[in-house]
């Protein structure tokens, strides 16, 4: 067992957990923050996306102990215009990937603002967040219901 102090959504949580507990399981099983989802537990679907110090990560491949001291934000700690935009544009069906999509989109918008390029960013291309840019940048979040169009529209609306 290891004593770990996790900072989640602005609050400190002392935890006594084994080192193999993932950040995802720490959130879901130990802190009761079940908004973050487990889809594959192998970094292949993005349902577990949370923000660590403002950057999106897959919490299933993060050991909780490793993220001691980091500011973790989960869907429960997010209050963002994207959430209403997802509803308006029907950016989900079953809702299981939605927390991950929203956390990922929040992180993505910040990355883009800071000049992070993507695989489709052309050399010297401007700062416009096109549909193609959003699709590439969001490709780490699978949606099996196929709500991709609505998700992209919601992000586009919020990005302006």
């Amino acid at each position: 067992m290891a004593e770990v102090r996790l900072r989640v959504n602005g609050a400190d949580h002392p935890l006594d957990i084994q080192p193999q507990v993932s950040l995802l399981d720490a959130l879901r099983e130990h802190l009761g923050l079940t908004g973050t989802k487990k889809g594959c537990d192998q970094g292949a679907c993005g349902a577990c996306t949370v923000l660590a110090d403002g950057e999106r990560i897959n919490s299933c491949l993060a050991l909780a102990v490793q993220y001691e001291g980091a500011e973790i934000t989960t869907i429960e700690g997010i209050d963002h215009p994207l959430q209403a935009a997802f509803v308006r544009h029907d950016g989900f069906q079953c809702g299981y990937c939605t927390s991950g999509q929203i956390c990922s989109a929040v992180g993505m918008l910040a990355e883009h603002k800071e000049g992070m390029p993507s695989a489709v960013t052309g050399q010297g291309s401007g700062s416009h967040l096109s549909g193609a840019e959003i699709r590439e940048r969001m490709s780490g979040n699978l949606c099996r219901c196929g709500a991709y169009n609505g998700i992209v529209e919601a992000i586009q609306e919020v990005a302006g």
Binding site: G35, I78, F92, T98
Partner: peptide, 17 residues
Amino acid sequence: DRVDGTAKTTGEARFTA
């Protein structure tokens, strides 16, 4: 709009697990 839209975009919707 879906009646469960807010539940699904805030993480409140509870699935089996």
